[in-house]
Design a protein around this nucleic acid. Sequence first.
DNA 1: GCGGAATTCAAACAGTTGTTTAATATTATT
DNA 2: AATAATATTAAACAACTGTTTGAATTCCGC
Lengths: 231, 231
Amino acid sequence: MSEEKHETKEKLLDAAESLFASKGFDDVSVRELAAAAHVNVAAVNYHFQGKENLFHQVIMRRFVVQRDRSLEALEEVLGNTREKPGVASVIKALVEEYLKGTLGSPGGSSFMMLLAREMHSRHSHSSSAFFKEMVMPIFRAYSTALMDVRPCLQQDQINWVMASIIGQIHHFVARWHKKTSFDEESDEVQILISVFPALGQPIEEYIRLVTDHITAFSTAAIDSLYPEVTP
Amino acid sequence: MSEEKHETKEKLLDAAESLFASKGFDDVSVRELAAAAHVNVAAVNYHFQGKENLFHQVIMRRFVVQRDRSLEALEEVLGNTREKPGVASVIKALVEEYLKGTLGSPGGSSFMMLLAREMHSRHSHSSSAFFKEMVMPIFRAYSTALMDVRPCLQQDQINWVMASIIGQIHHFVARWHKKTSFDEESDEVQILISVFPALGQPIEEYIRLVTDHITAFSTAAIDSLYPEVTP
DNA sequence: GCGGAATTCAAACAGTTGTTTAATATTATT
DNA sequence: AATAATATTAAACAACTGTTTGAATTCCGC
């Protein structure tokens, strides 16, 4: 056969990624995972050591690429020597890369929602490691970038601003997730779209609109609250 | 006895509110609920018709007061005839009342996180009704209020702005929830506090700081993007 | 092709889940 | 006080959970 080398271990990871994303950790049984991967039930405990660990590895495999893409996008903006980057370009890089990573691939939004959901639950597993290795690097990189392009910003002020931006991003991701994970014709989704027409657009356009809004909104706030000191 | 009239139905509702809030829907068993309410297991199916419905009624009972408080707070601001209210006062009312309602009472943050979590899950039950009766009224009331105090704002622009504000609110609620629902001494919480010192404050101070920040941040953005047309 | 390790498999395990049953107790009505 | 409606109870139900077992199979270096 062609791709016979798809080991059961990877078949499980793939099936798990898709299933966990769409139904959450608790609502996927080990048997369901095994069936979707065309694999025996015991495989989950043989290759990984239990359902929890499988979940854990699924999360890691996916989020590592998101982290690296975010950091690369920032470097690209900062390394653009043609013109000195401003607050807007840093924010735009953060928002755009995050949205592309989360909403760009199929099931991406579900996956990020799942992550958010599971991070606030008693499955503390090594969520601390996840936090330190995945979340913090992005946070720090963009914080220092902001400090570079707007030197008058205090660390304290940056933390508040970053929180506001990330809060907005999550919210718009959640909105898209709600639209796609529910029945498109359902009552609730209809109302949601009617009150927020951007949701009716295709995903690329939605990403563009949201990126532009968050960037404009946040940049305006920063420029107004912490204006650049003119030399 | 004094308050003997505590029917099992209400005892169950009380116990369920507390338990659901701290552990989520799936992680609370019917037997656990019954035990906490000092009531027989079957009571949950006799008085309500299954666990799902009990959960549903718990949510409603709690959120109705939150909705009414939010609407009252807005009326109070708008009815203040001493001086014409501005964008800032409307936003402040929205943020402050929401934070007080969610973080003010014990287990409040858990409850709102639970709500957010469960709304994006296959428990579609009549979440549509919840959306229409609880979320939309608040959304509409504050939208029209914003339009009143800043007439040049288009409906479309208001929707974007409201999304940004609500996104920020949820994020700060989620941060507090994470701090309180985890072990205070845990690795992750320590990092979180170190990177965001406001979390180390008592809850009243946290609410005040967050309210002021979101209000200032969002007002600055609105004033800059959609300035008042001077007559 | 043989032998030993690595993998797959059906079956069983030990719990827990939400819900139902049928008997009992309580309350309200006549 | 007797009757009917309502509540409460312990026990059982059937279905599902994640995990383990031990035999059967496949793989791979020799």
